[in-house]
Write a protein that binds this DNA or RNA. Sequence first.
DNA 1: CTGGCACATGTAAGCGCTTACAACAAGACC
DNA 2: GGTCTTGTTGTAAGCGCTTACATGTGCCAG
Lengths: 335, 335
Amino acid sequence: MESPPSPHRDPDGGEARRRTATIYEVAERAGVSIATVSRVLRGTIPVAPGTAERVREAVAELRYRPSHLGRGLAERQHAANGIVFPDLSGPYYAEVVLGYESVAAELGRSVLILSSHGRPTARDMVLDLAARVDGLVVCTRTVDDETVREVAATGTPVVLIARPPVADVDTITTENRDSAARLADHLLGHGYRRFVFLGDADRSSDFAERFEGVRQVIPAIIPITCGFDEDGGFRAAEAVRLQKPDAVICGNDEVALGLTRATRGSVPVTGWDDVMAARYAGLTTVRQPMRELGARAARLLDERITGARGEPHHDILPTQLVVRSSCGPHPKEET
Amino acid sequence: MESPPSPHRDPDGGEARRRTATIYEVAERAGVSIATVSRVLRGTIPVAPGTAERVREAVAELRYRPSHLGRGLAERQHAANGIVFPDLSGPYYAEVVLGYESVAAELGRSVLILSSHGRPTARDMVLDLAARVDGLVVCTRTVDDETVREVAATGTPVVLIARPPVADVDTITTENRDSAARLADHLLGHGYRRFVFLGDADRSSDFAERFEGVRQVIPAIIPITCGFDEDGGFRAAEAVRLQKPDAVICGNDEVALGLTRATRGSVPVTGWDDVMAARYAGLTTVRQPMRELGARAARLLDERITGARGEPHHDILPTQLVVRSSCGPHPKEET
DNA sequence: CTGGCACATGTAAGCGCTTACAACAAGACC
DNA sequence: GGTCTTGTTGTAAGCGCTTACATGTGCCAG
């Protein structure tokens, strides 16, 4: 019972700056082997009640917390998921991440985040992240298909958000084309005839689909490229003005808001996402369930990690047209 | 050179569903020992150029990525930091996290996030998180002082954001009292005399300090408690109305915005934070450098983790009054 | 020719866990 | 009383890495 020959460092001595107790110290204190401690903690194999009690006491006294590193190595899993997104500055990704974290936490998994910030090293960072999680969510075009394929090839499940499928990886998107067409219809109902689409369809499949949806209804729409944020919309004002459009359909709310600021509301505008500021700016937009997007991703990922499902899923979440004042005066026509 | 007696599983055979290559396979392929592979990868000890080249080739061919678990165990560190916040729905924490991630990534550390969501198990979740990171940032009142102390006691550095110091842990806050007093002065300049402070000073030290700052100038101010989000402000409208205030000073922008929505702008209001929506709502507020808050936290943490600094820091970041229209008409008085 | 040294590399002991397998004690059964 | 269970616990082999130490080689001074 006294000091079983453990290969580990002498557990007594200066209690002071010890990082944290190990399973060996708990075992010694409880007078059992480390295997028994492990069994009590994980509840895998029944342990005599008295023994279990002693172990639990030792755990409490030592404030023992199992090392995730040790456990992970032995179990060959991380109990953690990752999520990669371009940025967190807009409300969009914040909401997605929030929904994701919320479900992942419920499922007992930690969440590692990685913002690519458009860094050129994004590929490496993602590969690195993939090596420390059991599954990964990749938002939009943060890395190229090749990288996604490489991660998937190592056996790490991947879920793509707002991005076209790669290999047989799961994807979740929100409905774009139909709502875009509906939005266009609405604008046509205002009597507008000359349109500009503001955004960057090449760098986002969401934008591309929205553009396509609109163009189905308004073939002559003029695309103008700009950045994804307020600043992008603001700077594009001059280019937009040159086209003298009756209305501008923006790829997202931030661009719409930025443009509105530049034009001081002189041009009818619509956005996409329905962020908080959109409500206060009276922006007509399309609401998409951002939080749900993240939550679903977490669940799909979990199904893959636990092996509950084999075939790839491609979910599409519904969106909703929200008419406010930014598209101009109009006989009320709510959706 | 052929199959050195390794205790590990036979590395050849079905390449198909292998999770990922190990250092043993790289070593075998390059015809060296695992020690040499490790040395090449980490660059710790010089290796003959030819050998190094062979190792690098093997690494590339096998798409080898070192296991963070193995490495972490051996090095006794996680190369990861955590951050705990109550929620990510408002822009405030999203910005903080963004700034934090940005710097942490630069420093080569992964970021684990944990949203407490007011869950009763928050304490355990934080303790658990602490066991898988090298350092931890705790925002606001997500967990009690006891928990912070316990984490700090295990030797894991902790940085507190927007929260009073605990033990000798680092803290970062933004300036509240003075700006609050300045804000109050400004409102007095409008000729207002009867004030309400809307927020929950008991659950946030930021709110408490803002309230104190205001009360220094307006001793008779009436505090009303409400939730931290738009909904909280919206619901408090009736209680506020009963007090017939000349102006309402809210603890943050979201509350102010919610209240404004309920009163339809009939009562002068101020917020705090300067979130995106505040600009569009014309909200008079106090801007605080949210992203910088996170960035500084990441740096302070790093200093502690690397042991570059011993004494605790208590940083206070400056804030800035932003006057817009929500506080009512007034001879222009910018700050 | 030999001892010594620098350099390159291999050997093996951990890091903190999980778990297959072995060992052992106490009944149960014939 | 002997054998077989059943229940409980210990032993030890990994999991994939890092690194102190040992080993081996080539070269130079003596």
